[in-house]
Amino acid sequence: MSPEEVLKKYKNVAVVGISEKPDRYSNIVAKYLMDNGYNIIPVNPSIEEWNGIKSYKDLNSVDKPVDVVDIFRKPEYVTDIVKQAIGKAKVIWMQEGIINEEARDVAEKNGMYVVMDKCMKKELEKLKQK
Rank of each mutant, 00 (worst) to 15 (best):
A89K: 12
I47C: 05
M120A: 15
I71R: 03
K118S: 14
P45R: 07
W93T: 01
N12D: 14
Y38V: 06
E20Q: 12
S61D: 10
K88G: 11
V15W: 00
K9L: 07
I86M: 14
C119L: 00
N44C: 10
K118T: 10
V78N: 09
W50Q: 01
D63I: 03
K128L: 15
K31A: 02
V68S: 01
I18A: 00
I92S: 00
I81Q: 01
P45W: 08
D35V: 09
V68M: 02
G17C: 06
N12L: 08
I81S: 06
S26G: 06
Y10E: 00
I28P: 03
I40S: 02
I53S: 01
N39D: 08
V115R: 02
S55A: 12
M34D: 08
I86S: 13
G97I: 10
Q95G: 06
V115C: 11
K54W: 08
E76K: 12
E101N: 13
K74Q: 14
G111N: 13
E96Q: 15
K64C: 13
V78T: 07
V13C: 02
C119I: 03
V106N: 07
I53M: 09
G37V: 09
N39M: 04
N44E: 06
E5L: 12
V69S: 03
E49P: 02
I81F: 06
R73H: 09
I41A: 01
I92C: 04
D80A: 14
M34G: 01
L127A: 00
I47W: 04
K11W: 08
K21S: 13
P45D: 10
V13T: 12
S26V: 00
D70P: 07
L127P: 00
E101D: 14
Y77F: 13
P45C: 06
G111H: 13
I41Y: 06
Y32L: 00
L7S: 04
V68K: 01
L33A: 02
D35F: 10
I47E: 05
I86Y: 11
N44M: 03
D80H: 09
V115W: 04
E48P: 03
G97P: 08
E20I: 14
L33Y: 05
K130H: 12
V114T: 13
K11A: 08
L7C: 07
D80F: 08
V114L: 03
K126C: 06
K74E: 14
E96W: 02
S26T: 05
Y113W: 04
R104H: 03
V91Y: 04
D80P: 04
N39L: 10
V15N: 02
V115P: 05
L127G: 03
I81V: 14
K31R: 15
K121I: 07
V115T: 07
Y25A: 12
K128G: 03
S2T: 15
N60Q: 13
T79V: 13
I81H: 11
N51I: 08
I47V: 08
C119F: 01
G97T: 10
P42I: 09
E48S: 15
A89E: 11
R73A: 09
E101R: 13
K118F: 08
Y10A: 01
P42K: 00
W93D: 00
A85S: 14
P22S: 06
N44H: 12
V68G: 04
P22R: 12
R24P: 06
I18H: 04
K31I: 10
N27W: 01
M34S: 11
D63E: 05
Y10F: 15
E96H: 07
I53T: 01
A107Y: 02
K90S: 12
V115K: 09
